[in-house]
Design a binder for these strands. Structure first.
Length: 450
RNA sequence: UCCGACUUAGCUCAGCCGGUUAGAGCAUCUGACUGUUAAUCAGAGGGUCCACAGUUCAAGUCUGUGAGUCGGAGCCA
């Protein structure tokens, strides 16, 4: 990576200084030795470089300092860069000098196996290990791909508020806090309503920030605090919305393939699966999906009144759960968009399909390899009367939504948008087992430390 | 909120049908070693068996209650 801040060399740029004496600044990743020969793997955030100290070639004092280094000690090591096929990474440093900042004692995360509970308690240190380091670099790349994609397509970044006066969709449980004399405030579960307002001002906008859900979810794909990007576009209908979602996801995946090969290799990710993520993706309507489920005998587990369970054909009108989505996705090796869900199971602001008022112009994008839902979106209701009717029907406080209704009063236009979950996308691309591994400090129902 | 699992050394785990002084590997410390990749070899130290109550001659092991953690469902990104 080009940078003007090159006052010292970093490990990822070692290839450009072969034969020269340089000083690396970092932390001891691992040490091993064989008497007069000592190996120190040094990491500096950009990579890992093996440094070799051979006693007969060095001052007694320098060799003893090298020998005293422990895992995660902070140190600057000077030496000559050499190409060395035996070294991981291909380059090696022949040590000539060392400056110790701190000898670290009893670093808890050893190169041996650990359980996730232990690692999560040491999340602040776990981030230094190779797998987590690779995942965090992929997360950074996904975020950059998202910003590049929108910035390059005429979108403007418009931040939406995190403190909000009311529930956005009225369904999910929110974190609550006192807000001076104005009563209760809630942490935002979506910036969408505000994005609709800024889209009416700037045409195409996106909000990208943290979002909060107080649901007591305990699964490997849920966080209570996660990052979501939400584009909102004036004069986009549902088809435009789905096209944009496909373009975005294709761009993100291809960008990671282009810029994160070493990270994907560290994670042992099957690249060929990601290479297949090319437009066009699969699409099917909810009704087609229900038909497919019943044709393929994917039954719905239904609890009877007496507590027993029975398996029934999937009834039109019921929302899909994880088992249905997984069954549908098993047949695909790239994402699939399911659109036109029953209006009853979807949010109040989604526009009904003029051709079939029973369904909403909604869409979800499911990712393959069991990654599940990464996008949810819709064309928005743009008729004042229809939106007001929905608000009243859902028993939402009309006053709180007056500004939102105003958008349908003063120059209402067809418009659409969606939300893409950053962590779910990173989890899919990196192949991480659990969503808690793809955000530096995950917030989950039973964990807020560290 | 519902269902299920787990808790023994710093870490990962074993511990039989309840039976003597609690086991291994790794990590740590000491020593040997010129190419290690989770090095190897020799030695040393390291335990409130999650907590409380109960059954029993005897509980890490059986029973009950509680706590903590994890997984799944629902909700959704």
């Amino acid at each position: 990576m080009a940078s003007k801040y090159t006052s010292y060399i970093t490990i990822e740029r070692l290839g450009s200084v072969v034969g020269q004496e340089v000083t690396l600044h970092g932390w001891v990743y691992d040490t091993t030795g064989k008497g007069k020969l000592q190996f120190v793997k040094l990491r500096d955030g950009s990579g890992v470089c093996q440094c070799v100290a051979f006693k007969p070639n060095l001052d007694e004092e320098v060799f003893e300092q090298i020998r005293s280094l422990t895992q995660e000690s902070s140190v600057s090591i000077t030496g000559t860069v050499r190409e060395e096929p035996r070294a991981p990474g291909g380059y090696e440093l022949d040590v000539t000098g060392v400056k110790i900042y701190q000898i670290a004692a009893d670093y808890p995360i050893t190169p041996k196996e650990h359980g996730t509970e232990f690692l999560m308690e040491h999340r602040h240190l776990w981030l230094r290990s190779a797998r987590q380091h690779a995942i965090m670099r992929i997360r950074s790349a996904v975020a950059k791909a998202i910003r590049d994609f929108f910035d390059g397509n005429g979108f403007r970044l418009q931040d939406s508020p995190i403190l909000t006066p009311n529930a956005c969709e009225g369904t999910s449980t929110l974190f609550e806090t006192e807000y001076f004399e104005l009563g209760k405030a809630y942490l935002s579960q979506s910036g969408q309503l505000y994005a609709e307002a800024t889209a009416m001002a700037l045409g195409r906008v996106y909000t990208f920030g943290p979002t909060f859900r107080a649901e007591k979810s305990k699964t490997r794909r849920h966080l209570t605090e996660f990052w979501m990007v939400e584009p909102e576009m004036a004069y986009f209908d549902l088809n435009d919305d789905m096209d944009l979602a496909e373009d975005l996801v294709e761009y993100i995946v291809q960008y990671c393939l282009k810029t994160c090969q070493p990270e994907l290799a560290t994670l042992g990710r099957d690249i060929s699966k990601l290479e297949k993520v090319r437009r066009p993706f699969h699409r099917m309507s909810y009704s087609e999906a229900v038909e497919w489920l019943n044709k393929n005998n994917v039954k719905l587990n239904k609890k009877n009144d007496d507590g027993t369970e029975s398996q029934i054909d999937f009834p039109w009108g019921e929302d899909f759960g994880a088992p249905q989505e997984e069954a549908i996705m098993e047949q695909f090796d790239k994402p699939c968009i399911i659109h036109r869900y029953p209006a009853e199971v979807k949010a109040f602001y989604m526009k009904r399909d003029p051709e079939n008022p029973k369904v909403a112009l909604a869409m979800d994008m499911l990712a393959p390899e069991g990654a599940g839902e990464i996008i949810g979106g819709s064309q928005r209701e743009d008729s004042y009367d229809a939106l007001l009717e929905r608000i009243l029907h859902e028993n939402l406080p009309q006053e709180a939504f007056q500004w939102y209704l105003d958008l349908r009063k003063f120059g209402s236009v067809p418009h659409s948008g969606f939300g893409l979950g950053l962590e779910r996308t990173v989890k899919w691309i990196s192949g991480a087992e659990h969503i808690r591994e793809v955000i530096p400090f995950p917030r989950m129902i039973y964990r807020i430390v560290p």
